[in-house]
């Protein structure tokens, strides 16, 4: 769903902390027709210009809270990511990305479900590997975005 609109096209930025570029970020929406309890959101398959950025270097900024890692998000079992709300996906990468054009391959993993599934126990042990389409039921394919990075912002 919303294949080309899950990342806001003008949102790619470098993140700057105390004058130092610590990574990059983009604004994202949920790939579903509804929101979900935040705990169900397990991270992204994210390849930028051929480089894979796994969920371990990703943090997620939503609901007015500072960016949180997906280990912490896992514990947000009563907090909701509402359908209306844009969130910011941050990626730790010292030096950030170069100004100009980037190719981003993107898939969101949210283990929302229609009731009980055969994968439930397995996904309690570990969420599905990002990029496989498992746990991404409404937009199971990896989407390629061509985005421009124009400026950095103080995070």
């Amino acid at each position: 769903m919303f294949d080309n609109y899950l990342i806001r096209s003008d949102s790619l930025r470098n993140d700057i902390v105390d004058g130092e570029v610590v990574g990059f970020s983009m604004a994202v929406r949920i790939a579903n027709y509804r929101g979900v309890f935040l705990s169900l959101h397990t991270g992204y398959y994210l390849v930028v210009d051929g480089v894979d950025y796994p969920r371990e270097v990703q943090t997620f900024e939503v609901n007015g809270q500072p960016p949180r890692g997906f280990d912490e998000i896992k514990g947000c079992v009563w907090e909701h990511w509402d359908y209306d709300d844009e969130a910011i996906l941050h990626v730790a990468k010292p030096g950030g990305l170069a100004l100009g054009a980037h190719v981003i391959q993107f898939q969101q993993c949210v283990i929302a479900a229609y009731g009980y599934l055969s994968t439930d126990e397995e996904w309690v042990k570990a969420p599905p590997k990002t990029g496989t389409g498992a746990g991404s039921d409404k937009t199971p394919q990896v989407i390629t975005y061509h985005l421009e990075l124009n400026e950095g912002v103080e995070a």
């Binding site: 979900v36 896992k74 479900a113 229609y114 009980y116 599934l117 439930d120 126990e121 309690v124």
Partner: peptide, 12 residues
């Protein structure tokens, strides 16, 4: 209404 059975993440 939905039924996301993995909400608690540490158990079904």
């Amino acid at each position: 209404v939905a039924l996301d059975v993995l909400q608690f993440r540490d158990h079904v």
